[in-house]
Design a protein around this nucleic acid. Sequence first.
DNA 1: CTGAAAGCGCTTACAG
DNA 2: CTGAAAGCGCTTACAG
Lengths: 344, 344
Amino acid sequence: MAVTEPPERPTQRDIARRAGVSTATVSYVLSGRRGGAKPPPEETRQRVMRAVAEVGYQVDHAGRSLRRRRSDLVALMYPAPSSPWSDRLAEQMQEAAAERGLGVVALPMSDSAAGEALLRVLRERYVDGAVLLPDCPVDPDEIAVLARQGLSLVVFDDDLDPDGFDVVRQDRGRACREAVEHLVAAGHRRIAYLGHPGEDRWRSARSVKLRSYRQVLQQHGIGAAPDLVLPVADSRPDAYAAVRELLRRAEPPTAVVSATDRAAIDAVWAARDHGTAVPGGLAVTGIGNIPEGLVIKPSLTTVGAREFDFSAQVARLFERLDAAAPLPGEVMAARWELIVRESA
Amino acid sequence: MAVTEPPERPTQRDIARRAGVSTATVSYVLSGRRGGAKPPPEETRQRVMRAVAEVGYQVDHAGRSLRRRRSDLVALMYPAPSSPWSDRLAEQMQEAAAERGLGVVALPMSDSAAGEALLRVLRERYVDGAVLLPDCPVDPDEIAVLARQGLSLVVFDDDLDPDGFDVVRQDRGRACREAVEHLVAAGHRRIAYLGHPGEDRWRSARSVKLRSYRQVLQQHGIGAAPDLVLPVADSRPDAYAAVRELLRRAEPPTAVVSATDRAAIDAVWAARDHGTAVPGGLAVTGIGNIPEGLVIKPSLTTVGAREFDFSAQVARLFERLDAAAPLPGEVMAARWELIVRESA
DNA sequence: CTGAAAGCGCTTACAG
DNA sequence: CTGAAAGCGCTTACAG
């Protein structure tokens, strides 16, 4: 009968014993660090490295980070589901982090309790810093608290003021309103909205898209018909089906504004497949400016940042991480714009 | 001149002092745990909780996890960019994890050194367990080592045998070959392949899609024309442009198999926009079976799992985490199938 | 019922 | 040049 060995992870003590040195020397060899002093001589280094290889030693993160008071890890928090923008930001963060020997974890935030659980990663200092993309369900008050406790934070938010963390302003409300204005100016009165599920129950900073839609319609005396607001923007199949259904109504809308480009693109396909011309029969506007919007026919009118690039924001996060003393908060711009193409 | 206060995180010592108790009591109150003994009386509990609230205490993950030898965190490693499947799995993992008070971090693996840096999260025991989706550039040998050291692992892989970790078999090679066979059986001889960038340099387990394509063509004596293999499957704009270019050639292909459904869908659009009938003028097969493939016209023929559900695999991960003694490895099935719809 | 103490695995200022 | 020792913030078996 085979005895199940308890899983064993070798520690620096094991390495030290094996190499006939102290744990201090092991640590010095492994880290390369050594205050100002000279590193251990080559012969010692070899002995340690051999022992490391023999037992397959890997440093233990808990021990190291407790001692060093840093985890060498940063997080990217973004609203689920992921998007080309969150993917791109993750990629850029990973590249910048890798240069410094840091790692990046992604935290896709859902609305559920499971999303809330992810905040633990920030609260319990699992990471040294984070970028927070807009529409994450995080209490704004908590952000300042986290920053005050030394977490490096770059936060995409149009309402929050910097306070020991940096804020990236996108001015999403203005841009979204411009998109709806664009439709109204073209004569549209029956304008549907494809929104996020639950969006009307979100706190105001998160529901900026829906609010912009309602606000502009109201300003123009257009009653927002509740049956034109559909929570399908996070699912392509749902969006497609919803728009097909809209077009079959007795009084179909003449325009659609969608909280996501993904759903907007499916709205375009639904219209095309229904034999409705875009924008002639149905004008379509997205929000987000994903690359895919450029290649559909007609190309997608949308709202978003023009540059598919976060290097300035990523650089700022690492600047903050590297800073000896806490940096005051700074405002950065990454303005959203109305990008008029062919679909509206 | 304002003095910049060093960021201060209160510790349990601070709480203990403030509440006039020992750190042991603070820990007992906070964790609710208490061996077999009775929990502290309500009055003590109140005092501690008040102090916690006053200073905004949050447990420190490094200290806790060093002592408890577990992080209460699991990871999902998946090949970047994200997909509806990786999003779905992340969501299901989060729900199951939240029920147990655990958190989930996502690790999008790229091919670069930055991707390699993510392995640190597993190697250094940043997490207690992980699900590894296929096509992650992880050395198979290392997986067994990690498992032996106590990391709970559920690995999607068609080649690896379970060995202290569980393996989910999808039989992707067979399914991909069936898709190409399907095209050949329909009489296609000029079949293009939209692949991942760098796919021909990947180790064999990762390049199963490209190999399946080449293998079936060869079996049927069809020479694979190198100019029909295009590395555009990870970018929708690239895929669209590539297929448009293919269709403009003197001798355009009559079929396309794409390593991703995303690119396959753009291939369908490109054909439609070019005035080429699908599947009449161009048959299109995807790989992956994303929900979007159901709503395009014509609906997408593809290869993938039928059920958009990972609950069995997720349950297994947590079973493994909960197990008192190391569990032997198990093989689970989540077979990919050829799903013939309208596009081929 | 509560607290003093040990110790998880590391790093690093310090002594020799 | 190297090692003994302290200590990061927790948890928990144990003594009182």
